[in-house]
Design a protein around this nucleic acid. Structure first.
Lengths: 294, 294
DNA sequence: GATGGGTATAAGGGATGGTTATATGGTAAG
DNA sequence: CTTACCATATAACCATCCCTTATACCCATC
């Protein structure tokens, strides 16, 4: 195998020009440089590639055979480089994000629509799961970016908060009189409560906060999705623990009402995370910028 | 376009090994050299090709896409080099020779058979013509080697004599008595003579030799091929000027008889010629060696 | 916490590829 | 026939660049 592939780039140009000095001009080199390069290639292949004539050079049979292969090879590399450029343009590529269910519907969906409108050729791949599962996806390389509830305390991740969310309790008309005045945690815990499943990040957060205040909750209902929780509240099945931002429509329309707490639950944030150790792909970078408002 | 194709050879090996240090071993280089080469390639493409991990590197999407193209390109060049090697092996190639008609039948044919038996994959291309025409073919590049009657006085050619031939006169039974004793040129010229056409090298040679001795010939018959000349002699149409070596069978079988001349015609040689300025192809070189007995 | 395997970085030195200068050879024009 | 011009070949020199050595750093494992 010839050691220096660069000789083939020169060979290709000389073959096209059928002239050493012509190739030299095209390559911004001098004629002796070309002459030596071709001689080196011929020496390494132990084959004469060009017949020298007074008015330039002509390919030998061997040379013109080889030229076919070399030109194809160089073209291939050129095509490869073009494909790479497409990645940079975001005219091709893939965006793989991990996101919690609730977030995906209320927060991420509009962003994804915007991204897709702007870069229609980027393939989208969305993984769902709990925060812990998503971080695992990130570390195993299955996704490039995770959007989840903070806090995420992991020194190997870049974490950027993008939106504050507030855990709150809501109820339907049936509980209106009962909850006309502010209530404390203790009081609230005695009412019929509607929560997400214990494994969910939101549930854990609120539950732990109550516990820190010495209040243990035992919900009447434990449901699989935020939507269900909201619907149960509307059907007056109890007092529901929801994210205020994701219940905005119901609250504004008066279909649901917010419990006045005597003590605030500290807000959480939605954050976007990526691995510190792995640079983001072009598509991921762009999406990250979109999320954090650049 | 990336300037240094050599970077792609390194990239390919790194891609296969998924390790800088592994590739370094394979390429008999040091790890920093690989690291710098890849960094240079990434800089020129402005694209990250590998994700660095504690236990080696992994290809990015862009990198693995590019690798496909690069590997194909390198394979192509490898195949091209193999084809070139086939030329050197004489398992492919072409042998183009120019040769006079007479020579081709009696002298060259056995050599060509031997060559073809030894190198069955070499394509043969034979051009016929007069010596002058053949030399012109040689200079215009239509043939690589010419086998013709000497002398050929051309400083731009390599000429190597390979076989002596003798011009002689033969006759059939009818002239037996008449030519039982040696005859001189003058005497011979008065008999009915059978010659090749005036344009043929052999005819010119003998004719000029006679002329130098003050004898002008005027043949009864001027024929297009040596074979015809021989046949006319056998049919007792006259005394034929032939090449002794190409009439051996007839002379030995007694079908024809050789004129005893009082004065010898100096022998000529068959020679093989090639251009000094153009190196011979592998096939031509081998055939040349065969002809001159190496 | 130490060890080992991986990559990154810095700096120096030597090989190599390109340059300039010149030779050579052939062709075309005077 | 000779000159001039166009090609490539050759030689010598020099600067660049690539590879090496040395070292740092990170992470995992023992």
């Amino acid at each position: 195998m010839v050691s220096k592939l660069d000789l083939y780039r020169i060979f290709s140009v000389v073959g096209r020009n059928e002239s050493f000095s012509g190739a030299a001009k095209e390559l911004f080199m001098t004629q002796p440089a070309i002459s030596q390069s071709i001689m080196q290639l011929e020496r390494e292949l132990d084959t004469r590639l060009f017949n020298r004539t007074p008015k330039g050079v002509t390919l030998t049979n061997e040379g013109s055979l080889l030229l076919e292969y070399v030109n194809s090879a160089i073209n291939l590399i050129g095509i490869g480089e073009e494909k790479i450029a497409e990645f940079k343009n975001l005219t091709t590529g893939e965006l793989r994000i991990g996101v919690g269910d609730t977030i995906s519907k209320y927060f991420l969906l509009p962003q994804l629509e915007a991204f897709r409108a702007r870069y229609p050729n980027i393939k989208l791949k969305i993984e769902n799961g709990t925060t812990d599962e998503l971080i695992a996806f990130l570390k195993s390389g299955e996704v490039d970016i995770v959007v989840c509830n903070l806090p995420v305390a992991d020194p190997t991740l870049n974490v950027m908060p993008t939106m504050d969310i507030h855990d709150t309790f809501v109820y339907g008309d049936k509980y209106r009189k009962l909850l006309a005045r502010p209530v404390g945690f203790q009081e609230l815990a005695k009412l019929p409560l509607i929560f997400l499943e214990p494994s969910s990040n939101s549930r854990k957060y609120v539950e732990e906060h109550f516990l820190a205040k010495g209040v243990r909750i035992s919900p009447e209902f434990e449901l699989g999705s935020h939507d269900l929780v909201v619907e149960f509240a509307r059907m007056n099945m109890g007092i529901a623990c929801v994210t205020r931002e994701f219940t905005k429509d119901y609250l504004e329309s008066g279909a649901l009402h917010e419990v006045q707490l005597t003590e605030q639950i500290p807000h959480r944030s939605i954050g976007v995370c990526s691995l510190k150790s792995v640079p983001l792909s072009p598509a991921s970078t762009r999406f990250w910028e979109l999320l954090v408002g650049e």
